[in-house]
């Protein structure tokens, strides 16, 4: 009972002291970028194995947060080797000309309950579009864990040209889901 009381008293302090910090060191091995597309009405998951992310975020000052995520498109895993080859080709990402996709955000706002929205620009295949990526952030063992999604309409970027433009087979909407674990840096 005593221990519980102590824990209860301490916990706001503990949370307060951690969240006062800015989190800006992305832990690569505890982060992931996945995507979900719909093929013939079936949600199919894939992932990008290589990406570089620079994120700084302080839950007390979300508006100061910024993020830059660069995805290496050649690292796509779309389920099988046929699909991977196809995705890298001209009709889809055309990675020879456009090897990376990039999301940049300099404006994050809190929408309450640990939920936020990062407004930014997504650039794929040389085309840049404004997007809003909703995400939530929670503390986990001294790190900040961010989970969210960037909604994309693939045809706006010309992803899946020609015969693939038929959205009855592969839907226009694709969710790029991110999961980042950020370590804190001490406040100066």
């Amino acid at each position: 009972m005593k221990r519980l009381l102590l824990a209860l008293l301490m916990s706001p302090l503990a949370v307060g002291s951690v969240s006062a910090a800015e989190f800006n060191a992305v832990l690569g091995d505890k982060s992931a970028v996945n995507f979900v597309s719909k093929q013939m009405g079936v949600p199919v998951e894939g992932k990008f194995k290589k990406f570089a992310a620079q994120i700084s975020f302080d839950t007390n000052k979300p508006e100061k947060g910024r993020a830059q995520i660069e995805i290496e498109l050649a690292s796509i895993d779309a389920g099988n080797s046929d699909a991977n080859d196809e995705a890298k080709g001209k009709a889809w990402f055309n990675i020879r000309e456009f090897p990376t996709a990039k999301f940049v955000s300099g404006g994050i706002k809190s929408v309450g309950n640990g939920r936020y929205e990062a407004a930014g620009q997504m650039t794929i295949k040389g085309k840049t579009r404004d997007v809003v990526a909703p995400f939530n952030a929670r503390l986990d063992g001294g790190n900040l864990v961010i989970d969210g999604a960037i909604p994309i309409l693939r045809l706006q970027y010309g992803i899946g040209d020609g015969a693939w433009a038929d959205t009855g087979t592969v839907a226009d909407e694709v969710q790029v889901r991110f999961h980042f674990t950020l370590a804190a840096t001490a406040k100066k």
Binding site: Q39, G41, D82, D85, A163, W164, D166, T169
Partner: peptide, 12 residues
């Protein structure tokens, strides 16, 4: 078949 929208349809 090589991968194509048609192939995805036929699989379904």
């Amino acid at each position: 078949l090589p991968l194509s929208p048609n192939k995805l349809q036929l699989y379904s």
